[in-house]
Every structure is written in structure tokens, then in C-alpha cells.
Amino acid sequence: IHPSPKKAYTKIVSNLLLAEPEKIYAMPDPTVPDSDIKTLTTLCDLADRELVVIIGWAKHIPGFSSLSLGDQMSLLQGAWMEILLLGVVFRSLPYQEGLVYAEDYIMDEVQSRMSGLRDLYLCILQLVQRYRKLHMDKEEYVTLKALALANSDAVHIEDIQSIQKLQDVLQEALQEHESSQHWEEPQRAGQLLLTLPLLRQTASRVVQHFHAIRAQGRVPMHKLFLEMLEAKV
């Protein structure tokens, strides 16, 4: 007996919830005095460690591991910053002011300005406000994160059909969640999907900013972070 499609989609969201990684802490070096370089170094180090976790997380998305290695790489190279940003956004939802890069690393506008990150702070805050207005729940967050990864517009995709299928399954899972948990808001799935352009635009601005920081050569960056940055030229 096959499970009904409804149950299968509910199971996808439950699996995505189970696949959620453990919290990662920024752990800024207490022996180094505060400076813009220290902040940027801490953020790049945090992103590098989160990337390792994101790669492991992607393998838990149903269908991802069946894609060719090349397509798995292309999807991650295309969406990593969107995935990182969604994490920051979700963690920041309960806070009125400040971006929660990690539970031990919350930056407000003043701290962001001192590190040359005020513009990015404002852009990311706009994204936070968009999701806060929607009262995004955890199920929606994990499904949107998987949808950001399953991006058929990513460059160098070999098997577009498989990625389209992955996208359809995730979208159905989101729709199913909405009709069972938010049935009084029939537009909700659409509203959530319509946040993805702003997410992509913001991710692109953050990547550009870190490209510029990299070009200045004052901030040490780990290899995986550099590799992913280089993939987005």
C-alpha cells in the first residue's frame, strides 16, 4: 500500500525539520581587540563552518543525493548565500533590532556600520521584516530553504528535469503544509514564494560585498568560503 500523496508531502516537511542542523556559534576570539577586521573575520569563519553543515544538510533533502555530483555542486554554488541568509533571517525574527548571525553574535545597526556593513544590514533587515510580516513558521522556513537550493536557474545544470521534479515535490510539500496549517490564508504559499526574488537579490549583494573584501586582502578567509565565493563571479 502506497501512502497517500498528502502524507508523503507532510513527511517531506517532517524530514526537513529533522534535518535541521544544530546551532553554530560564532565564538569571536576574546584575545583580539574589537575592530572591523575582527568582525569580518568572525563572520567569514562562521560562514565557512556553516557551509560545511549546509553541504551535509543538502544530502538530507529527498532527491538531492540522486542528482549528479555536478548538479549537486551547481545547486550549492548557486544557492549557498541564500541558504545562509535565510538562517540569519529566521534566527532574527524574534528580535526587533539586530541580525542574529549566531546566538552569540547579534549585530545592530551601530556595530554593522563600524564594520562597513550598514548597507547590508539594512538590506537583510528588509528581508527579515518581509518574513516577520508573514509570521513565517519553522516548517515554512525549512521548506523555503530547500526550495532556494532546488533552483533550476542555477548555471551549468545537466539534468534540468530532475531539478524541476525536486522543486515540484518541495512546492507541493509547502502547499500541503499551508492547506493543513494555514487554511485560512489561501495566498500564503504564493506570498512565501514571492519572497524568493528579494532573497536572491540580497544574497547577490552580500556576495558582491564579500568579493570586494576579499580583493582588499585584509580579512583572512577559509578555503571552502573562498571556493564558494569564487564560484559566484
Binding site: V53, G56, L224
Partner: peptide, 19 residues
């Protein structure tokens, strides 16, 4: 692949806890 060897390696490895 050569340019993206860490990503390649991490995808080929088992669970993230092995890393």
C-alpha cells in the same frame, strides 16, 4: 571540479559528522 575540490570532497563523503 579541481577548482572546487573541498565542495566536491564534502559531497562525496558520508555524513557531515564524519568531517
Amino acid at each position: 571540479t579541481e577548482r572546487h575540490k573541498i565542495l566536491h570532497r564534502l559531497l562525496q563523503e558520508g555524513s557531515p559528522s564524519d568531517i
